[in-house]
C-alpha cells in the first residue's frame, strides 16, 4: 500500500507540470495563438533550478523555508488522495487537509510581507482574502458523504450517489478550483502587471530554485485539486478520475478564454454564489433522508 501511494505521488509530481503546459497550450490555441510547447513548464523548472536564488536583504528564515513548506503541503495533499490506494486513513481526512492547505498560504503570506515589497504584501492580503472566503465552500463541497454518516475521509466520496446534490457540489468545487489554482476570472496566472496579481504576486521576490519550489507546489496543487474534483464525479476508478481531471482542466482553459478577469471586489459575489451552491448541495443531502 505504501508503495502504491508513493507511486501515485510520483505520477502526480511527474505529470503536474505537463498538465500546466497542456492547459496553457490549449488556452493559446483557443485564443488563436500558436502557444508554447506543453513541455515548457519542465524546461522552466529545470532552468530555475540551475539559476542562483536571491532574496531581499535581512529577511527572516521564514522566507528561506517557505517554498519548502509550500511544496511539502502540496505533496502531502497529493499523496493523501484516495486514487491508487483507498486512502491513507490519518492523512485522507477532509478537515485536516483543508486546515493543512492554510499552512502553505500562511507561510507564503509571511514570506511575502517579509520581503518588504509593496506588491508582495498586496498579493498576500488578496490571497488571504480570497482564501478565507473560499474555505467554507471548499469544506462544504467535500462534506457530501459525511451527511450520509460515512465519515470525513476523502475515500468516502468515492461511489457517492451523484444526482442534483452532486452536481451542485461539483459546481461549487469548480469555482473553488478556479480560486485555488489562480485562474481567470478570479486571478490571472499569466499577467505581467503586478497590480492585478494575486497568487503570482506572492512569489515575486522568489527566484532560482526557491521559485522552482513554489511553482512546482502550485502545479502539484492544481493537479491534486482537479483529481479531487474527479472523485466527486461518478466513476471512482483510477482512470475515470484521471479522465474527469483532464476534462475539467480543458473546461478551465475554455473558461479562461471566454471570461475576463473580474475586479477584485466583484470576486466575493462569485465566491458567495459558490458558497450558496455548496450549501444547497449539502442541504439537499442533509434533508434528503428526512423529507
Amino acid at each position: 500500500m505504501i508503495a502504491r501511494s508513493l507511486l501515485q505521488l510520483l505520477v502526480i509530481i511527474v505529470l503536474a507540470p505537463l498538465l500546466q503546459g497542456a492547459m496553457k497550450l490549449l488556452r493559446a490555441r483557443l485564443q488563436g495563438r500558436p502557444g508554447s510547447s506543453a513541455l515548457q513548464p519542465y524546461r522552466d523548472l529545470a532552468k530555475l533550478c540551475r539559476k542562483e536564488s536571491i532574496l531581499p536583504d535581512g529577511v527572516s528564515p521564514i522566507a528561506v523555508a517557505a517554498p519548502g513548506i509550500a511544496l511539502g503541503v502540496a505533496l502531502t495533499f497529493a499523496g493523501a488522495l484516495p486514487i491508487a490506494v483507498p486512502g491513507i486513513p490519518p492523512l485522507g481526512e477532509i478537515v485536516a487537509l483543508v486546515l493543512l492547505l492554510a499552512l502553505s498560504r500562511f507561510t507564503l503570506g509571511l514570506a511575502a510581507l517579509d520581503s518588504r515589497s509593496t506588491f508582495a504584501g498586496m498579493a498576500a492580503s488578496r490571497e488571504q482574502t480570497v482564501a478565507s472566503l473560499v474555505e467554507p465552500t471548499l469544506l462544504l463541497a467535500l462534506l457530501g458523504a459525511a451527511t450520509l454518516g460515512r465519515g470525513t475521509q476523502l475515500s468516502s466520496l468515492l461511489h457517492l450517489p451523484f444526482g442534483l446534490a452532486g452536481l451542485l457540489a461539483l459546481g461549487a468545487f469548480f469555482l473553488v478550483i478556479l480560486a485555488e489554482t489562480a485562474r481567470v476570472p478570479i486571478d490571472n496566472q499569466e499577467t505581467h502587471y503586478e497590480l492585478t496579481m494575486i497568487h503570482e504576486g506572492l512569489s515575486l521576490e522568489f527566484s532560482g530554485w526557491q521559485l522552482a519550489f513554489v511553482q512546482a507546489a502550485s502545479y502539484v496543487r492544481q493537479l491534486s485539486f482537479l483529481l479531487l474534483a474527479g472523485l466527486l464525479l461518478p466513476g471512482g476508478t483510477v482512470w475515470t478520475v484521471a479522465a474527469w481531471a483532464v476534462v475539467l482542466a480543458m473546461a478551465i482553459a475554455v473558461v479562461e478564454t471566454l471570461f475576463a478577469k473580474m475586479r477584485l471586489f466583484e470576486i466575493p459575489q462569485l465566491l458567495a454564489s459558490a458558497f450558496v451552491l455548496a450549501a444547497a448541495s449539502i442541504m439537499l443531502r442533509l434533508l434528503g433522508a428526512t423529507l
Binding site: A102, F106, T129, S132, V134, P136, L143
Partner: peptide
C-alpha cells in the same frame, strides 16, 4: 461548520 471554516480563514488572514 461553515461559520467555523470562515472564522479559520479570517483568523489566518489576521495573524498573517
Amino acid at each position: 461548520t461553515a461559520g467555523l471554516a470562515l472564522t479559520g480563514g479570517l483568523a489566518a488572514a489576521c495573524f498573517v
